[in-house]
Design a protein around this nucleic acid. Structure first.
Lengths: 224, 224
DNA sequence: GATTAGCTGTCAGTTTCACGTCAGCTTGAT
DNA sequence: ATCAAGCTGACGTGAAACTGACAGCTAATC
């Protein structure tokens, strides 16, 4: 899942990025409002963590313009403790959740996860497909009571495919969701990851179908 | 989705039309205000992209009369950079969004998408025809809860036919829709693609009728 | 700091299949 | 009957996708 972190505090920025990356997100970080606003006109994210106190363009403005553009990407805002008024203002402007500094890292992560889920699976922490049960909280995929042994990349791909259910996901989309700005992978790399995941899923009656020129989609295996 | 582009600049007109068509819109283009106004009295659109500087009847007038007729079709206006005053005037008159020239094509498309999403209830970009449901955002065609297995070309053709509903679509239009700029395909190629798609749709009670010398149209199968 | 194990991207050789071409046929208008 | 427009099965081709092998990297263990 691709996450945008808008935060100007150096220490916080680094800490959060590190922790999100570790949790398997593709993270982009930007530290001023103007840049964030510009970035958001052409790049889609699954979730945005937005500090309100920003240089150049306030977090409010960024949020307001994002919503004005019709985006419904989930946004979590970070506010200072005493700043109740701004918190309310943020929610009015279309934020989906807020957190007051200082906060527990675990709580932030939990809320971010909740936001991502809300849009897709009706808020449930576990999404099932065929015989698979994908646990978004622990980032684990179970078959019965056995955990599938998947690598980080495979897990991230499966997460994306399972969230999109039976919809076609293009190779470019996959690249975008697995990678943040600085890293970059080839189309062939995606093919390789697909190939490896496909082999593992096939055993459990789940198939990754290829739609030539368009992308991939998850489907139940038709047993002929 | 049906889009009206009102623009008199030749180059801009062509570029925008091409790009919108490629993105799967059914695009009508008209280059003067009077014509636009007339057209809008009897033709509904999902979204209108309206340049303000037009011959015969200004964009303002077109917009004003449209709203006076009680229409709430989303309108995005294009203005020159320095023209802040007109921008404000446009928004007052009932435009839903504006963009100043010069602009990024990607941004225009994003905003148009946003307008459509905002307007349509639930943001469903789905068009149904007979038993088919065509999902334009995911580029997928469903019958019940099964996804039709179509190739890229077939999908593009079906998209065009379904967007134009029961109207006749000429072979040339199809060629334009399926090909970009440089590549080019023969008329016979179109016939082949039609033939292949036709076979797949027939199973689901949807027919592609041939109108000799004019083109093709989508129709519900009459079971005699 | 050496060793090992697992992950992940690159490469190259192979396979697959979508699509345009063609040819022969059908249809329909005059 | 003639002719043009359209249909469609067969086929070849080239691009897209697949995948086994490999190498660089990281993280863990001793």
């Amino acid at each position: 899942m691709r996450l945008l972190l808008v935060e100007d505090d150096l220490i916080l920025k680094d800490g959060l990025e590190r922790s999100f990356v570790k949790s398997g997100y593709a993270v982009d970080v930007i530290s001023d409002g103007e840049g964030a606003n510009k970035l958001l006109t052409y790049q889609e994210y699954d979730v945005i963590v937005l500090d309100l106190g920003l240089p150049k363009l306030s977090g409010f403005e960024v949020l307001k313009r994002l919503r004005a553009r019709g985006s419904n990407t989930p946004v979590l805002i970070l506010t200072a403790l005493e700043d109740t008024q701004n918190r309310v203002k943020g929610l009015d402007l279309g934020a989906d959740d807020y957190l007051t500094k200082p906060f527990e890292l675990a709580e932030l992560e939990a809320r971010v996860r909740a936001l991502i889920r809300r849009g897709v699976s009706g808020g449930s922490a576990k999404i099932s497909f065929g015989g698979l049960v994908f646990d978004t909280t622990n980032r684990q995929c179970m078959v019965g009571d056995v955990a599938l042994s998947l690598s980080a990349r495979e897990m991230a791909l499966l997460e994306l495919l399972i969230l999109k259910a039976t919809k076609v996901v293009s190779k470019v989309k996959i690249m975008e969701h697995l990678c943040s700005w600085d890293e970059e992978i080839s189309e062939n790399a995606v093919e390789v990851i697909v190939s490896r995941l496909r082999k593992k899923l096939l055993v459990f009656g789940v198939e990754i179908k290829t739609i030539r020129g368009l992308g991939y989609l998850l489907a139940k295996l038709e047993t002929n």
